[in-house]
Each structure stands twice: as C-alpha cells, then as structure tokens.
Design a binder for these strands. Structure first.
Lengths: 373, 373
DNA sequence: TCAGGAGGTGGGAGCGCTCCCACTGGAAGC
DNA sequence: GCTTCCAGTGGGAGCGCTCCCACCTCCTGA
C-alpha cells in the first residue's frame, strides 16, 4: 500500500540525472601528451591499494592492519601504519559500507504534522542522549523530520532502501503513516514512546501514567478538590496515558475527574485550554498540565485572569525542561529522564544491530516540587 | 598538526574488527546438499541486475531508466518500471554513493564544550530550516555534536574522509579545534555565524551588532540612562558583536557603556550576571541581555530582588524564541530569523556542492517590542 | 621423521551501482 | 546511392573496500 503511493520518480533520481557523473572526469582534458603523469595537483584521496603498495604489502594485509585484525606480522603492521601516515590515508566510509553492508549510521525520525513539532526542546534532549550512545558504537546520527510530505517520502525511501543500520521512531500519532512503513522495513526499529494502539517489539518509554498519577496525587494531597487536566494531543499515547494517570488518581481519591481539555503540547494551546477551562469551571483549584509548555500557557492565562498561583489555582506540569524553572512561579512538574530516553533508545538499537534481543524499557519519572503547587 | 593528533586506531576500526563481515555469511551453514537453491527465504533486496533481467534489458538501460536519463525507448522504460514495481526494487544508496562519489548527506556540526549546548532551542530552529532546504536537494542531514572528545574525533574523521557531501559548522568559539580541520578538509564548508578572528569564505550570519544596537537604542529612547549589558560568551563572535552593538549605541547617545558582564547564553548565567550587576550598580535602569535565556534569568533575579520590570529596570533580550513570550513580563527582544539561517546555510551548501560560488549572507534582525521594555 | 597446526600472506571475487564507449539500425541530408 | 547523424543498446570497467580461500612457512609434538 505504502508501496503503491511511492512514485518511481521519487524513489530514484527525478530528472536531474546529470548529478551522476564522476567528478572531475567529464571536464578534464584527455591526457594526450606524453608527459609522464608526475603529479596531478587536485589529487584524489589515497586508496588502500596505494597504502599497500607503499608499505610493500598486499591490500589484504593492509586492510587487516587497519582494522586491527589478527594475522598480520608486527613489521608489516608498522609498515602499513607508516604508509597511512605518510599518505594521509583515511578509509573511504562509503566503500567500506558497500563491502560490509553496514552504513555506519542510525536514523532518528521525528514524526509530526508540521516541522514545528521539532521546536520542542524535548527532542534536543533526546538527541543529546542518543548521540552519546551512538558515539560509543561509532554510528553517525541521521536526523529525519517526517513532518512534511517530502519528509515522509524520504523517510519511506530510507526505510525501504536500508539507508541506515537502524531507525529510532518518535512522536508517532494514531494511524501514523510511519507505522506501516516501520512494520514492513527490514531494518531494526526502536520506538521512542509507544504508538497508540500498537505494541512494537522494541521501544523505550517513560512511565507517563505513573508520573501523571503522582502529580495529581500531589495536588490532591495539597487539598485541591477540583482538579482539571490540560491534555496533550490525545492521538498520542503520551497524551492519553497522562490523562489516564490523572483520572486514576482522582478516582482513587474519590474525586471527579474533569473531561479532557485537549491541547497539543504547545504553550499557546495550554493558554487557550486554560481559558476555556476557566470559563466553564471558574471554581477550579488545581490543574494538571500534560507538559511544561502547556503549564506555562496556563500560568499565563491565570495571570491575565488575576488568579494567583498556587494560592487560587495550583499547577503541575510534566517534563521538567528549562521552561519549568523559568516560569513564574517555577513549576512543580514531573521530571522525566529525556536524555536517558534517547540514550536507551540508541543503546537498544545498537544491540539490535549487533544481533542481540533487547527487551523494552520503561523509564521512571519523579515529581519535582517547586512553587506552582 | 590536527593530523598528528589523530591516532591510527581511531581513524580506523579499533579492535572490533569482527564488525566487518558479510552479514549472514559467517554463521550460515555451507551449502553442501544438492538441492537447487530454489529460494532462500531471508531474501536479499533485489538488485539492479535483477530488475534488468526481469525487464529484459541490460543493466545500463535499467540504470538510465531509473535515473530518468535519455537514450531509453519508451517500451523499455516502461518494462523497467514494471520490473521495479514487481520486485519492490529500491536502489542501494551506498552503492550509488560509491559510484557517484556523492554521499547524499550533509553534516551539521555543532561545536561546544559539552553536549548541553545543544539543548538551546536555537539549534532546533536551525535544523528545521536546514532540513527544509536539504529536502529540496534530496540530501540527508547528519547531525554531529562536536562537544566531547569522542565527538570531536568523529567530526575530524568525517571531515577527512569525505563522509558527507558538505558540512555546516556552528557555534565555533575562539581557537576552536574545528577551525583548522575545516580549513584542511576537501569538502565544502559553510559557517553558521562567523568564527572569532577568522573570515571564512562561506557563511551565513545574522546582523548581531545591528540588532544589539537597535535594542539598546530602544532602551535609550525609553529614557534609560544606566543601561548595562549581560553578555554571552565573549569567545564567540555573536557574543562579541552583540556587545559591540550595545556599546556603539550607548556611545552614540552620549552615555557610558558598562563593562561586559559575561555569561554563557544560559538562563542561570543570566540570573547570576544580573545578580552581580545589581550588587555593583544598584542604580541600573536598563539591561540588554545577549539572548532570551539570559534575559529570562535576569528577570528572575530582578523579581527576587523586588525590582519591577519594566518600571524599575527595563530588559531587552535577543533571539525571540518561545521563552520570550513565556517570560513574565513577555520580553522585548531582537528577533532573528533562525529558521532562515538554517535554510540559507543549507542552500549555500547545496549550491557549493553543485559547483557554484555563492556569496556570504547576513540576515537582518528586527526589534519586537513587548512588555519588558 | 612426518603429520598437524597456527601465524602469515596475497590473489581475487565480490558489494551494487554509474557511466564510458563501441556498436547497431534507421532516418535524414546530399 | 552514399555518408552522417543520433537515439538506443549492452558490455565492461571502474568506485574502494572486505573477506574467503589457497598457499606458504615455521614450530610443535608424537
């Protein structure tokens, strides 16, 4: 199905076929004069063959020496190292990739309706964590935003062409077009956060429901009885799980949960959601926001409405990103280990690439109490 | 020099040479029985040869058809397309890269002392912009954080091995180790923001000094006479240029510039800088902060000190990122087109890769007046 | 004494693509 | 009628690496 959607032209080059030419060959004049080719100034990178020749060994030996493989005498190994230094040789990663069938790269795909989703500092933290783990495995990070038609097409192409050794998928929504692609690809896939209505084989997630429950329990423990929820997108599992946690906590306390007041994890959506909430339930005295951005938006609306936080309304967020500390008052929030999320995703992917069978992981959250509740 | 620093082992594989094996060959039992190899279930991806065979054409024709090159009859072109569809063929990017000598990827390198630099939402915006432009050129984005020893080593390796078609370099500091590497690499390099004390051939920058000047002029126009500067890192050109702009504006107005109160572009550093400023100059009535993060920190310190913003102290930031609107009061700030910065860097790189000679670009800034000044 | 390793070595066949080039046949030009 | 041209075609040589395998040389131990 996804297959059918892909035009041939898109899979392959689209008209700009002149791209495919050996560089510097087409326009260099044919060598007709008899001058021995002493040196051609725009020198190519030296190849392994040249290293081998200079070191007086075969290409095989040079290759083994380079890769620290056994079966190379000390003398030849040193000769190779010397030649490498003299020639300034650096192995060609593409050639290596072709021979080994390993690209040396892992892709991080962020799904979304439009690219602005990536502006959330959440992803930056994931990347910091993933990069650390990928460095250890000597893999490069390819970053793909599947947040435009073109972007999604390219991700599809990547998945089908094995353009990387593995993929990390994040921020999938319900019925995300990436999901079928992920299922039919032949490369290892790790999910960051579970997709709605699907149980992927490998994922790293955060205890969203547990964190939300703890946050809500905190509000209840502070004597709040009319606690509302400003939800994130409910077509994401994170948005749903956080609402579930909130609801469970209230039910357990014998209080009535509010219906979900949906937003989209952004500050403006939090402000808007808070405004409607205030209009419909002026007596609300506690708010659990699905993330810090929305909590910050709520703070803004409350301030404009003249409500004091936490005196009139207590607010709890989720994420514990920088905004939580910048907000006024600083946000009580559910800390989630975002860098660890990225790191563990990458680790899981690496072990998958190495043929191991890791098990899914759910990372714990922890309530950070500040002034807002 | 940078050459000498690189150990051989690091350039090549370091001991884990078992990585380099044909997958599924080492551990598949040798085919000794006489059964004709009807089908091996874990089927390889189809190759161009198989497509050609199925379409009844030569590999050359199939390749041309795929790349939309001329010299292919309509009939054969269609036959190839049919074969591609039937086989589910997807070109192997690595093989293509080896043959064309083009990797199909561009690298974005973010320099820094430690990876947390990447947490600044600034980079996320750059990436959104760069991705858009890279998509148009059908290039993938490789993201490299040169913010650890390992990270820097890998960037060095990338630069020397032509592991990408080009590089975008950001956040370089004075005497950044990336600078000599960038000079000696053979691939196109575009700088995002000029490095201190170097005039790269190709860069995209923002009018930092102009923006800072405008921001300071705004403070002066509002009647502030004791205007201080909370600086960003002064080993970056952005940090310096913004201070210069501030200073020039004050001198032009006949006022005394404050000595630079240095921070590092983070919120805590802004808070700290504001605290010392307040201790040394309790009568300050205007503050130009080198970016919004630092301005937010300043806001926090002022609030804790009981100073009203903007009544007692007016504050202006720089960047116009989300935090500027979340801050209380919302920040008057210098808007810089960060996505455009990323987009233009990528465009410049693409044109460089295509053999053109683009010219450096300086993007304009614009003052956004909100409540803080 | 000779079999049996084990360390060392290089040849060569890939990996899957692009693109040069030599060749074909039919249309156009004279 | 001939040459000239050009769209169309396929063979084959790369691109720069890895790794299988055959072989060679010592060094063991029986």
């Amino acid at each position: 199905m996804a297959e059918a959607e892909l035009e041939l032209k898109e899979l392959c080059g689209d008209g700009n076929w002149k791209r495919y030419q050996y560089p510097g060959v087409a326009n260099s004049p044919p060598v007709t004069d008899s001058r021995s080719m002493a040196e051609d100034p725009p020198r190519r990178q030296p190849t392994l063959d040249e290293v081998a020749e200079r070191a007086g060994v075969s290409r095989s030996v040079a290759s083994r020496a380079l890769n620290n493989a056994p079966h190379v005498s000390r003398a030849k190994r040193e000769a190779v190292e010397r030649a490498v230094r003299q020639l300034g040789y650096v192995p060609n990663p593409t050639a290596r990739a072709l021979a080994t069938q390993q690209t040396g790269a892992a892709a991080l795909v962020v799904s979304g309706e439009d690219p602005s989703i990536f502006a959330d500092p959440f992803f930056a933290q994931v990347i910091v964590g993933a990069t650390a783990a990928l460095e250890d495995a000597d893999l490069h990070l390819m970053l793909c935003l599947a947040a435009s038609d073109r972007g999604r097409k390219r991700v599809a192409e990547l998945l089908r062409s094995r353009g990387a050794d593995g993929v990390m998928l994040m921020a999938l929504r319900e019925d995300d077009p990436l999901l079928p692609l992920a299922e039919e690809t032949r490369m290892p896939v790790v999910f960051g956060g579970r997709p709605v209505g699907a149980a992927p084989r490998w994922y790293v997630d955060v205890d969203n429901a547990g964190g939300a429950r703890e946050a809500t329990e905190h509000l209840v423990a502070r004597g709040r009885t009319r606690v509302a929820a400003l939800c994130g997108r409910l077509d994401t599992e994170a948005g749903r799980a956080r609402y579930r946690g909130y609801r469970d906590a209230l039910l357990a306390a014998g209080l009535d949960p509010f219906p979900p007041q949906e937003g989209d994890f952004t500050e403006p959506s939090g402000a808007a959601a808070m405004a409607t909430l205030l209009a419909n339930h002026p007596d609300v005295d506690g708010v659990f926001a699905a993330n810090d951005n929305m909590a910050a938006g709520a703070l803004r609306t409350l301030r404009e409405a003249g409500r004091l936080v936490p005196d009139d309304v207590a607010v709890v967020g989720f994420d514990d990103l920088a905004v939580a500390q910048i907000a006024d008052p600083p946000l009580t929030t559910v800390h989630q280990p975002i860098q660890a999320l990225g790191r563990e995703m990458a680790r899981m992917l690496v072990s998958l690439v190495n043929g191991q069978e890791p098990t899914p992981l759910i990372l714990p959250t922890r309530l950070v109490v500040r002034a807002s509740a």
